[in-house]
Design a protein around this nucleic acid. Structure first.
Lengths: 109, 109
DNA sequence: TACACTTACTTACGAAAAGTAACTTAATAA
DNA sequence: TTATTAAGTTACTTTTCGTAAGTAAGTGTA
């Protein structure tokens, strides 16, 4: 039997994307720096999980968190270079989904 | 507040990839048609989940299941056109992981 | 002064999904 | 007869998710 394994770096990369919501959060941040509530409403994730995912992505060095001490305080999340460098990947997924996903397969329907 | 939503087709595509193991199973099948136990050992997934994921991927039209009535029976899983068309995406993830994931971030370590 | 409102979270808890291990079915091999 | 292999399935425990409510810090309104 073939016991060759998948490249561990690829495996790690895929494990980031294959955690629910993380891919969409990264994709949403491609639009530019955004605050918590904006991501929450456009991605459709709950605060509890968004909080968790943003912490993970910060630890992975994909997302940066910045506090602006205005009143009320503004906190912005943005992509680091590592995160921005996922853009070609996101473009590929965009074009794949455009070609292969039908309207009626969509979650809305 | 910005309430614009993410493209539903993209969302659906990401939901396929963001289910644990599916991305790795697809990636593994890029190597060519393979049987259950080969995928199981190279991806490192349990039979219970592999069985589930292959069924899902078949329903999505990404994977094809073929039975060869030899003795013992041989069952091969392979990618459909829809599945094969994810190759550019996988290549992008490969190159991103090659550039940004360090050895020590890997699951093995 | 008291009360409501907003942002960015956190806590609590029931439900769903994942992980592990043992079991099954069918056929051949020792 | 017993063992082995492939391709799963079942049973059970642990982890993760989803929903809703709560919190802290500051502002605005009555």
């Amino acid at each position: 039997m073939d016991t060759s394994k998948i490249c561990p770096k690829f495996e790690k990369a895929m494990s980031i994307l294959s955690k629910r919501w993380t891919g969409l959060v990264i994709y949403q941040l491609m639009e530019g720096p955004q605050r918590f509530c904006t991501i929450e409403s456009s991605v459709g994730i709950s605060g509890r999980l968004l909080s968790d995912r943003l912490k993970h992505l910060e630890n992975e060095g994909i997302v940066k968190r910045e506090v602006f001490p205005e009143t009320p305080v503004r906190i912005e999340y943005s992509l680091t270079e590592k995160g921005k460098d996922m853009e070609p990947l996101m473009k590929e997924l965009e074009s794949w989904s455009g070609e292969w996903i039908k309207e009626e397969e969509t979650v809305e329907n």
